[in-house]
Design a protein around this nucleic acid. Structure first.
Lengths: 245, 245
DNA sequence: CGCGTTCTTGACTGCTTTCAAAGATGGTGG
DNA sequence: CCACCATCTTTGAAAGCAGTCAAGAACGCG
């Protein structure tokens, strides 16, 4: 079992999907087998192109990718990030076209998403996929509220708490730390701000002891105050989902 | 066959679902039968509450509803509108909890969503549901880009074009007109603005001949310029979907 | 006709953007 | 091992879009 570039000590994919639904030993093995057939997508390369057919449903094994909408005049909005363990290109209808462009923000490793093998109601893997899809929607809703109603500092606080939880689900975060392998410009593109303003706001948050940053890692120095600032509360999507908090 | 309050001359549900996938005569009949068992939800009443279990998947027959996120301090963001023909509470995993609160913006009529009867790959109704779900995601993506990167005037232009297309799909719009049975405050809540600013921006758009407003109806007076303003392009989700434009 | 909701208007504030340029930082080849 | 270049971060000053607060006008409903 060769190690994977960038992050991912064990397997983010197995960790995350197991957290979403109980998987059989056989299902875990299927995922690990898929990982043998992984491929690499270099930083800044496109993974999916809006309007093009989706070839191969995949799992992101390591790295960060982003769904993006680009405007003609150069403006850019990142709709959501894809983190290790996230699914990509899964569709419930036939002849799906990618709804958005997806690009690799860092170097990424992808693997084919194993087929759930029949029964959609019972299979652990099928359940994990379904829950994953519900979670994705949930984060889209949060992203909308974030962009629509929160100030710059609130957006950053909210996004950090959310991203920390997402990383934790894939086994990639410690209690108060998570990796943030992106530039402030990319961060600005997801938060609907300019990189200049993100920079200034991050400085304020550091000076007021909310966060610490070093080595592309965020430390949530005062989670309480961060959560109060953004009115943050943990996710609840499915009654059956394994709780992580 | 009794007529339904508010809007909906024929059946928005049949119109929209038929546009999403080819339905058999039997399937249309199933929808019309469901409509006999409809119920009314009064303006401002809640239809779904975030975190509560989803009881009954439904179709909206008439009226407008809204997914909403409320902040403790009173701020409010509408995540998306539900228009006649839209599905509500459809979930692919078991024990689903409502991801967001949904409330009736106007008086609404809802009906139980008929069961697709078995085969998920072939049934026209199942296909329509799947496509509907993909479309919902597509509009969430657009909402994110709208809030993140567009100015007030661009947001309004983009939202109007989108909403016109959505109404048209359910047979509720003529070439350049669509109903907008909501106050400017509600409009502000979906666009991430204040009602004061929406008011001023609408005035500018009227004065510059982009739109006309009367009797809770929007007329797209200059669709070309509106589309250019917002970099608007029509939707493409599934290669198999019936095109409406 | 009266009242509550919705729309409109004005003045002022302020958060965020814009534009530019100066530091850091990191990777690469000589 | 260090110079060099590209990328990323930081800083400053000025402008602008949107928000806030308040009050008056218009509208719709009973």
């Amino acid at each position: 079992m060769s190690s994977v570039p960038d992050i991912a000590p064990a397997s983010a994919a197995v960790a995350r999907l197991s957290a979403l639904a109980a998987l059989t030993q056989g299902e875990r093995a299927m995922i690990e087998e898929s990982e043998q057939r992984s491929w690499i997508v270099g930083k800044h390369r496109e993974i999916l192109r809006e309007g093009r057919p989706v070839i191969q449903p995949a799992i992101l094994l390591s790295g960060w990718a982003a769904r993006t909408r680009n405007f003609r005049d150069g403006r850019r909005q990142i709709l959501s990030f894809l983190l290790p363990g996230d699914l990509l290109g899964h569709c419930r209808h036939r002849d799906p076209l990618a709804a958005t462009t997806v690009g690799a923000v860092t170097n990424c490793v992808l693997a084919p998403a194993p087929d759930p093998l029949g029964d959609p109601g019972e299979g652990g893997l099928a359940a994990a996929y379904a829950t994953s899809s519900a979670i994705e929607d949930y984060y889209l809703f949060r992203q909308i509220a974030r962009l629509g109603r929160l100030s710059a500092q609130e957006r950053l606080a909210d996004w950090m708490l959310e991203t920390h939880d997402r990383c934790a689900l894939a086994g990639l975060a410690s209690a108060f730390r998570f990796p943030m392998p992106i530039t402030q410009e990319v961060l600005a593109d997801v938060l609907g701000l300019t990189s200049v303003h993100v920079n200034r706001t991050l400085q304020i948050m550091r000076k007021s002891g909310l966060i610490e940053m070093n080595d592309r890692t965020i430390c949530l120095a005062d989670p309480r105050r961060l959560a109060a600032l953004a009115d943050y509360s943990p996710m609840r999507v499915a009654a059956t989902m394994t709780q992580t908090r």
